[in-house]
Structures are given as structure tokens and as C-alpha cells.
């Protein structure tokens, strides 16, 4: 298991009039190498949960085990936080807003140098990371502030990729991007998953959840209301639920209801559906 969350509670503004329970007895496990979706309405506790995972927030109660690291509510006992953050990295929503260096390569190398790499080593790794997100030499010496929104986001993601974490948490990686920008980012994420990384993606976009994730967890008011296979989630929830079923999956469900021999567990994208349709049409 890559991540084990046990009876996690997180309370904001404890013992003040503004007290608010953001996570209410959350327990879940995420296997190594999986691609997991984390879904729920704004304010359901998703962001709080992922910030607990790399100790940006310290649990009010309960514990988290991330491979060899342990996070509990005793702040002093949480050592090796820096190594934890190298092992599990968090890409925030709109990460392009965290860029600050005068050149793209320096910005990407910044994280590496924080984790103890020497400058030339860091720059070299930064170049590799930038190439992997599709930004070539032309970009290395440019200022991040003169790039387009999509390019800046790729630089920011490269900054995290360069650190080479084993677990990558992405908060709304496609928010605010146009179709092309989203596609670029998602194919990058998919590549990282194929390279063996564990991916956790927080998103509102159910099409992305269906297309990419194997498993997902649904949070509501700080509680986990579903944990299991993504297709199973869409299969079990009703139309009027807060979670919108992707139209593709709706169609698959309709076919299943009509008695078509469709394997709903395998439907991830339109190609999958058409393949199955073709297989029964040939008969």
C-alpha cells in the first residue's frame, strides 16, 4: 500500500467560534501504482485531505502512513517531513501562480535545490523534466512570466516532476485550461502513471475520472461516502446524485438496461464502447 489513512480528523480553527470539521473520521487505502480519483463538491474536504497527505496540515486526530513515513497529530514526532514531500508531491490548483524565478530552468531547478541537489545537477534534471512536459531548449532561458497560461502550468508541473516523487497528487490539473491545454496535461499525467507512479487526482470533471482513474473516493461533508472502482461508482449512483455521470457512461448504462451484452467495467472512453458495439454487431 502506498497510502493508508486511519480514522483521520481535521478541524479548522479549533476552540474558536469559527471551528469547522473538514475531515470527519476518514479511512482509506491507496495501493502503489494506482490512479485514484478524489471527488466531491467544493468544501467537501478533498483539499484538506491531500494537504494532510504531505504534512502541510497536521491531522487533528488519526494517522496517515505513506510508505515508510508516518504522520500523526504530535507535531514534534513528525520527522523527515522534507523527505516525505520528496516522496509524495502535491501539485496545487493553478500551480502556475507559484512560479517566481527569472528563467524557466531556474524555477524548475528550485525545488531540486531545496531537496539538496547541486546547482548543475539540478539544472540538468530540470532540462529533462522540461523536455518531458514538451517544452524544448527554446524555453529554458525564457522568463516564466512571458509564457501562455498552459505553458506556465507545464513549467510548474515540470518543477514537481523534476523532484521525481513516487506519489503525485494533482489538484484540478486541468482547471481553467482550454481543450488542447487539458489534453496535453492529461496525457502527461497518464505517461507518469505508466512510468509506475501512483497518481491521485482531485477533480470535478467526471469525464476525466471515468477516462483515467481506476479507483475513486467520494467525499461528502468530510466523510468518505464511496471507495472503490470508478466504473462501479458510476454504475451504482443514480442520475439525480450530486455526481454527474459522464454521458458516455449513461449510454453504456442504457444499453445494459436494454439487455445488451455490454461489459460496463471496461468502458473508459468512446473507443471502448464502439469496440464492444462492433463485437456484438458482427454476430
Amino acid at each position: 500500500m502506498a497510502i493508508e489513512v486511519k480514522n483521520l480528523f481535521y478541524i479548522y480553527g479549533r476552540k474558536t467560534p469559527y471551528q469547522q470539521t473538514a475531515l470527519d473520521d476518514v479511512s482509506l487505502t491507496i495501493p502503489t501504482g494506482s490512479f485514484v480519483g478524489l471527488i466531491g463538491r467544493t468544501g467537501s474536504g478533498k483539499s484538506t485531505l491531500v494537504q494532510n497527505l504531505n504534512a502541510l496540515l497536521i491531522p487533528t486526530e488519526g494517522e496517515i502512513i505513506v510508505d515508510e513515513f508516518h504522520i500523526g497529530n504530535k507535531k514534534r514526532k513528525n520527522k523527515k517531513i522534507k523527505q516525505l514531500r520528496k516522496h509524495l508531491s502535491l501539485v496545487f490548483q493553478f500551480p502556475e501562480y507559484q512560479l517566481f524565478e527569472e528563467t524557466v530552468e531556474k524555477d524548475v531547478a528550485f525545488g531540486l535545490m531545496n531537496f539538496g541537489y547541486k546547482q548543475n545537477e539540478a539544472i540538468e534534471l530540470a532540462h529533462k523534466a522540461l523536455l518531458s512536459v514538451g517544452l524544448d531548449e527554446k524555453y529554458f532561458k525564457r522568463s516564466p512570466f512571458e509564457l501562455s497560461g498552459g505553458e506556465r502550468r507545464r513549467v510548474a508541473i515540470a518543477g514537481i516532476l523534476a523532484i521525481n516523487p513516487d506519489i503525485l497528487v494533482l489538484d484540478e490539473p486541468t482547471a481553467g485550461l482550454d481543450v488542447k491545454g487539458s489534453k496535453d496535461i492529461m496525457s502527461l499525467v497518464k505517461q507518469m502513471h505508466e512510468d509506475g507512479k501512483t497518481i491521485i487526482m482531485v477533480t470535478h470533471d467526471m469525464d476525466l475520472v471515468l477516462r483515467y482513474t481506476e479507483q475513486c473516493f467520494v467525499l461528502k461533508d468530510g466523510k468518505v461516502t464511496f471507495g472503490g472502482s470508478t466504473n462501479q461508482l458510476f454504475d451504482t449512483i443514480s442520475d439525480d446524485s450530486a455526481i454527474e455521470i459522464p454521458p458516455l457512461f449513461k449510454l453504456a448504462k442504457k444499453l445494459k438496461d436494454r439487455g445488451a451484452p455490454i461489459n460496463i467495467e471496461n468502458i473508459k472512453n468512446a473507443e471502448d464502447l464502439i469496440k464492444q458495439v462492433n463485437s456484438w454487431r458482427k454476430k
Binding site: P247, L251, K254, V277
Partner: peptide
């Protein structure tokens, strides 16, 4: 996509009607 596979669903207005053609 269906059209390029030789399935004509031009007349179908919504998902229900497409499902009817497919099965």
C-alpha cells in the same frame, strides 16, 4: 464516430434514441 463505423444515428436526438439503434 459511429458513422465512421458504418452505424447511422443521424436521426437520433438523444442518448435513448442512440441506444435504441445500437441495441
Amino acid at each position: 464516430r459511429l458513422k465512421s463505423e458504418g452505424i447511422n444515428v443521424d436521426k437520433s436526438k438523444d442518448l435513448d434514441e442512440i441506444a435504441e439503434v445500437l441495441w
